[in-house]
Nucleic acid binder design. Structure first.
Length: 577
RNA sequence: GACCCCGUAGCUCAGUUGGAUAGAGCAACAGCCUUCUAAGCUGUGGGUCGGGGGUUCGAAUCCCUCCGGGGUCGCCA
């Protein structure tokens, strides 16, 4: 139950009632009416903008509409009082008896509290990481990986049917480079001194195991072959091993995508060709010339007739080439095929998570989605993740540009742990740059949000350990015994959770969950601290079993919400620290 | 030259998709404290929301424009 949505429906129903009884005009547009949490406790629990939104179309002063609405709302069994404020806000205060109902329902739902049916099972495809399979993931992939994974989980909790997907770029020239690099390591594994890795090839040590595997499987057989013969063999082996490496890196971050789509397979199965033919038959492909790019003077610009896709017809800045000068398809061509492939699998929403350096791809991805969708209702949503800057104790971590010296995703995870990486990557809006300080993120102090949230969960767990068997009866707790300001504050916060989930899902912004958890933890810690000064506010009272039970039940609900929210972020809640 | 993102307290950032007197955490200042789990608590001060114009009952939020920072811009992937 989303209590704000619930009261929004009530407000809309009352407006409709007023229309039918002739006090307001018929046919008012109710869609802009919202019921929100009050920003200040002094304003009550809920506020609605209904009167102001309707003023114009009803041709009445907002406060007059508010007056009509307030009279109708007075009859609601959950509403204690209402007041008209400012330009026409209606502040609503709920009866004290309402909150126990909310807590009981949350307690009964347990870990499912907050889940929503908003998505109505709609099929959503979330594609993220999709790094080239030419080596281990580096730290730059970290943020997109975590963001995509959390977004997918968020959408799932919000009732969408989510598929987590990885697009394997195994068809371009870079995998041939991979193969040649691996071939060198193969010769090395057979005892040859290969010297320095030539520039243009991948120098990383991570290819040594590939060379050894090839040597084990083929002994010296590949040495006598011409490149055309060994290259496919080496390439396939190297690709498979690189993808295993990448999957291990992702697993270290607790990311396990269920679908991997190979670009090469899109070519081999004729998907690319079919897509191009399809577009051609719809008149979306033509032969033409592109203007040279502005800015950097083009060095090897060759003005030639190309096979172009009419991307501009779908909002892109320029039409895009489909066929390279050597006659093979461009990467963009397989991109279109991949988009079509997703749509054919009946996804209604295609989410792409990209690094900020790919911002130039947003329009063309939207364009190909629109072109492939035709008259189907398919949304394309691209989310960009800004860069992460690494620090250690305030000092920037230098990454030498010399080949092979980069910080890998694995380095970061091994040093600070997956939970810390995940939380910190999500404790910032995705399009804002992020500073990641190895030292600060592992500090056990209030200034560290990961710790702060985890600590709340651990503290609650600790209370339950202390409560022992007494906690077993929380199901029968009488929540009406709770009434302190600090308790009501945290209860109201709990009431917001379902709304936060839905809003975050609609906006595709998992960071809102992280900030919410911080606020909830903050409310909880405040409650805890209050018990230090006022012993009667402690959770376990030897003298008052019923109140203790109510408080333990409240703690249990808080813990459910913390665990649920951390689950969306992919962070494990801890029992003790 | 074009497009995208960012600009909010001294610092790092939120801001419920257009709502009321713009909020947190650091830092600063003033008190308190030794614990149901130690990694402390409470309070105070701090703002031309980059500048200007517009849209309307109402703008940090939407539109235009300018300034500043970052990114991207043909056949690579």
């Amino acid at each position: 139950m989303n209590l704000f949505g619930h009261f929004q429906q009530i407000v809309r129903a009352e407006i409709a009632g007023l229309s039918h009884s002739g006090k307001l005009p018929l046919g008012l547009d109710l869609t802009r009416i919202v019921v929100e949490p009050s920003r200040e406790a002094a304003h009550g629990d809920l506020a609605t903008n209904a009167a102001m939104v309707l003023a114009k179309s009803a041709a009445m002063p907002p406060r007059a509409i508010a007056q009509l609405l307030v009279e109708r709302l007075a009859g609601n069994r959950d509403i204690q009082s209402t007041e008209i404020a400012g330009p026409g806000f209606i502040n609503i205060r709920l009866k004290v008896a309402f909150w126990p109902k909310l807590l009981s329902s949350a307690l009964a739902l347990g870990q499912r509290y907050g889940s929503s049916t908003l998505g109505a099972g709609e099929k959503v495809n979330v594609e993220y990481v999709s790094a080239n399979p030419t080596g281990p993931l580096h730290v730059g992939h970290c943020r997109g990986a975590v963001f995509g994974d959390a977004l997918a989980e968020l959408l799932a909790v919000a009732g969408f049917s989510v598929t987590r997907e990885y697009y394997v770029n195994d068809a371009g020239a870079q995998v041939d480079v991979l193969a040649r690099s691996a071939y060198l390591r193969y010769r090395e594994a057979l005892g040859e001194d290969i010297g320095e890795i030539p520039s243009g090839l991948y120098p990383g040590d991570y290819l040594k195991p590939v060379g050894q595997a090839l040597a084990y499987d083929h002994d010296k057989a590949l040495l006598d072959m011409p490149e055309a013969a060994w290259l496919p063999i080496v390439r396939d082996r190297a690709l498979a091993m690189m993808m295993d490496l990448i999957r291990e890196d992702l697993a270290a971050l607790n990311i396990r995508q269920e679908v991997f789509i190979s670009e090469k397979s899109l070519h081999e199965t004729g998907e690319v060709e079919r897509t191009v033919e399809d577009l051609r038959s719809r008149g979306l492909i033509y032969e033409g010339r592109l203007p040279p790019p502005k800015g950097e003077p083009p060095e090897d610009w060759e003005d030639r007739e190309q096979t172009l896709f009419r991307a501009t017809q779908f909002g892109d800045d320029i039409d895009r080439p489909l066929i390279k000068s050597d006659g093979s398809y461009t990467y963009f061509a397989s991109d279109i095929a991949y988009s079509r492939h997703k749509i054919m699998r009946d996804f209604k929403e295609l989410v792409y998570v990209l690094g900020a350096d790919h911002s130039g791809y947003v329009k063309r991805l939207e364009a190909i989605g629109a072109a492939n969708a035709g008259n189907r209702d398919v949304k394309v949503i691209v989310r960009l993740c800004q860069l992460v800057k690494l620090y250690r104790g305030g000092e920037p971590v230098r990454m030498s540009k010399r080949a092979g010296e980069f910080v890998t995703l694995r380095d970061v995870v091994d040093e600070v742990g997956a939970d810390v990486v995940r939380f910190m990557m999500l404790y910032r809006k995705n399009e804002a740059p992020l500073d990641f300080d190895f030292k600060k993120v592992t500090e056990q102090s209030k200034e560290n949000p990961v710790f702060y949230v985890q600590y709340a969960h651990a503290r609650i767990s600790s209370v339950f350990r202390n409560a022992g068997a007494a906690a077993e009866a929380v199901e029968n707790a009488d929540f009406s015994r709770l009434g302190d300001d600090a308790e009501l504050q945290v209860i109201r916060r709990i009431g917001e959770y379902p709304r936060v989930i839905e809003a975050a899902a609609v906006a595709h912004e998992p960071h809102r969950i992280a900030f919410y958890l911080y606020d909830l933890a903050s409310d909880f810690h405040a409650l805890w601290n209050k018990g230090k000064e006022s012993p009667q506010l402690r959770f376990i009272l030897g003298s008052d079993m019923q109140t203790s039970l109510a408080r333990l039940a409240l703690l249990r609900v808080i813990r459910y919400v913390l665990a649920n929210g951390l689950g969306i972020l992919g962070v494990k809640p801890v029992e003790e620290m």
